[in-house]
Each structure stands twice: as C-alpha cells, then as structure tokens.
C-alpha cells in the first residue's frame, strides 16, 4: 500500500470517527444513566440531518449568503430543535416505562425509530436529499519528496475542531458543574440520588437532551461533508455509533470518543485496502465480536453480577 493513500485514509477515518464518537455519546450517556439502549438515537441523528438542510434552505430563501453566519445559525437551530426531539421522546415514551421490565423500553425504542423514520419519510418524501456546498477548498499537505499530498478539506477540519470543542465543553459540564455531579450521582444510584434531593427525572431528561444535541452536531457536520442523505441513514449510522460506544466501554465519555475514532479508522482502512462493499459487514462483525469477547469495552469496567 502506498503511504500517501494510507495517510489519506487515516485522515478520512479520523474524521469519520469523530462523527461516530459524537453520536456514540448519546448512547453511552443514556446507557450509563438508565441502563437502556436508546435504539431511536440513530433516527435523532437522521432528523438532525434533515433539519440542517431545511434551515439552510430557509436561510437561503432570506438571501443570507455569509458562510460563517449561516453555519452558526444552522448549527444552533439544529441543535435546539433536535435536542427538543430528544427531550420530547424521553418524556412521552421512556419516562412512563421507568419501572417496567428490561424488554419494554427496548421495544419502545424500536417502535420509536420506526415512527421517526416514517414520519420523516411521509413528510419529506422517500427520495434522497442534498445540501449545497458551503465550504469549499482544502489544505494540501505534502508528505514526501515525490510531491504526494494528502488533502484535508475545510469541512473535515471544521468537523474535528467542532467535535473536540463540544467534547471539551461536555467534559467540563460533567466534571465541574453541579449538573454534572447530579448526572454522575444518578448514574451511580438512581434511588439514592433521588433520596438526596436530586430530581432524577430532570437529570435523565437532560442526558437525553445532551445526547440529542451531540447527535445534532454530528448531523450538521456530516451532512455538510457528504452533501446528501435520506431517511434511512439513521439505522446504519446508529448501529455503528453504538459499536463505537461499546468498543470504548459503554458508560464512559472518553471511551465513546476513543471507540468512535478506532471504529472510524478501522472502517476507513478496511474500505480502502480490503473491500469497500463489505465495510458495513466488517463494522457489524466487529460489534458482534466485541460484545462476545469484551463486552466491557476498552475503558469500561467489567460488571460483577450480584446474587
């Protein structure tokens, strides 16, 4: 394999991985706090991609052309509306099931993802949608003396910067604020936390909001990068992001990012050097193998079953 291709695939993989990582945060936080796989999270990401295109179109119809302004407004609006989706779903579908069997919320989540998918399909049509190119151009970095270069587009740079920034903000919130403390306490022991006066329902709602917001950031950035999407994207991306969460150790925030990066790199290399048709098979196989052989992931702690 050529070093320039290798380097280029590494860049692509890292960019892909940060988006997986951002979505994985939603899975990992929700799992950490109420021990359930929020199957509808991938669809939240899909919704945010649609919102991005819609807000872009709205801004364009007002004749706004300033790229930085458009970016900031679209990002903010998408995050808000997507987060609202996350909160709303939690409120109507998951909260009534707080004390039910383990299967119930999972089945609800599958039902929700069907609902979201088809709600979007019925509203927006089944065809694939596109986004105009906002940021053009790229950095070209020479890597050897033969004039081989790797290209990092401005959008890719933006993805990495925004992802790192949002991770930093999230880490700050979780470790330095009273809200973060309440989150971590609820994660440890929900009943005890509520006895100590923490409004655990509120904390859980906030976790859903944060997860949806992170997915929205990924949705905006990835749509800008690829330019097209349809109502199906939530499913596969959702499972891959879940794979990332499990790989890093479900429940762990840095784990989600790490898992995302590793999965992104692995997928990118597999697609580049082995077979791009089977890259999804590869990702799914990875998921199955991790769950079988190391369900606690890289940074997670193995669970001891209490008898």
């Amino acid at each position: 394999m050529e070093p320039s291709i290798l380097a280029q695939q590494t860049v692509n993989g890292l960019v892909l991985g940060t988006s997986y990582g951002l979505i994985a945060i939603g899975y990992t936080m929700v799992y950490g706090i109420i021990g359930m796989i929020n199957f509808a999270h991938g669809e939240i990401y899909m919704v945010s991609a649609y919102l991005t295109a819609i807000f872009l179109a709205v801004l364009a119809s007002f004749g706004i052309t300033s790229v930085p302004f458009t970016l900031v407004v679209v990002l903010a609006a998408t995050i808000c509306v997507t987060a609202l989706h996350g909160w709303f779903l939690e409120r109507i579908a998951y909260r009534p099931l707080r004390n039910s069997t383990r299967l119930a919320p999972l089945i609800t989540a599958i039902g929700l993802s069907l609902v979201l998918q088809n709600y979007v399909r019925l509203s927006q049509g089944a065809r694939s949608q596109g986004i105009p190119t906002l940021l053009q151009g790229s950095f070209a970095i020479p890597i050897d003396s033969h004039g081989n270069l790797i290209r990092i587009t401005h959008v890719q740079t933006l993805i990495v910067i925004v992802a790192l920034l949002s991770m930093a903000v999230l880490t700050f919130i979780m470790h330095r604020t009273s809200l973060g403390r309440a989150c971590r306490a609820t994660e440890q022991d929900r009943i005890m936390a509520s006895l100590l006066g923490i409004d655990t329902d509120r904390v859980i709602a906030i976790v859903f909001i944060i997860g949806a917001a992170m997915a929205a950031i990924a949705g905006v950035l990835v749509s800008l990068n690829y330019g097209s999407f349809d109502f199906h994207i939530g499913f596969v991306t959702g499972i891959k992001a879940f794979t990332a969460a499990v790989l890093g150790g479900i429940g762990s925030l840095p784990g989600a990012m790490l898992g995302g990066l590793i999965l992104g790199l692995a997928e990118s290399f597999f697609a580049g050097f082995v077979n791009s048709d089977y890259k999804d098979v590869f990702a799914f196989s990875l998921l199955v193998l991790i769950l079988i052989f190391r369900p606690s992931g890289l940074l997670g702690q193995p669970q001891i079953t209490k008898v």
Binding site: A53, I54, A57, V58, A60, Y119, S123, G125, G130, P132
Partner: peptide, 13 residues
Amino acid sequence: APISGLVLDGYRF
C-alpha cells in the same frame, strides 16, 4: 414545524 411543514425540494423548500 420544520420537518413536516417545510418540505425540501432540491436546495429550496
């Protein structure tokens, strides 16, 4: 409102 009210049609709605 955004998803069901503003239906995408190419780059416009």
